[in-house]
Design a protein around this nucleic acid. Structure first.
Lengths: 116, 116
DNA sequence: CCACTAAGAATATCTTAGCCT
DNA sequence: AGGCTAAGATATTCTTAGTGG
């Protein structure tokens, strides 16, 4: 199933196996093997592909027919990538990335308010 | 990252590695190795885990902090698993599963109407 | 009971090169 | 170019115990 999705996405972008391979930093033979279902990429490569095509791994694996990321999650990602936020937040409190994320998520929950 | 998520979900359910292993039909040593990040399950097992805990693979892999499936997709899944639908649809037209899915998706788009 | 460790066996993937259209 | 195939080398996972809390 991953093979079909991968081929679909690649051709959709008008890319050759080789050009995609270069972008993903892997040999083009691997792409061929993945698309034909002869090999399964390791998780790192799977996620590279998901990132590159901007889809979920569930979509790549054929678990979901929707390529879209979770809406809420998407909104949150936009929130934490807001330049303004970065300006007043990140420079203030040096702390672990995990703690930052947890804190930001709480703030986000508050900001979006009663939508919950 | 998968390890953390897996352990979290398992303990959340109050399961031992052994009991989870039995449910997933794999040796309990594998669970231990996955949780500690020494091994990576194949995609089949990954999806078994996602199904069992009812989360996305993106969540398991740590790509998403949201465990929730895409709302739209979830609704669609409910739709196609509706017993009534199965009754009047599946028995009528024998065709490939892919075609069925494509057709059902179109119907679903129509049914949910202007929500789009 | 529960989680972790070890080591050989089994499997899968990677790499490199070549072939076909 | 673009895509596929082959085979040895490499790396990973599985299996089957066994250890310790």
């Amino acid at each position: 199933m991953l093979g079909k999705r991968l081929r679909y996405l690649r051709e959709r972008e008008g890319l050759s196996q080789l050009s995609l391979a270069k972008k993903l930093q892997i040999p083009n033979q691997n792409i061929s093997n993945y698309e034909r279902g002869f090999r399964q990429p390791d998780y790192e490569t799977l996620q590279k592909m998901a990132d590159f095509f901007d889809v979920t791994t569930d979509y790549l694996l054929g678990r979901s027919d929707s390529y879209k990321k979770d809406k809420e999650e998407e909104d949150f990602q936009k929130f934490i990538n807001d330049p303004e936020l970065q300006h007043w937040y990140y420079e203030e409190l040096p702390q672990s990335e995990e703690d930052q994320l947890r804190q930001l998520r709480k703030m986000w929950e508050i900001i979006k308010g009663d939508k919950k």
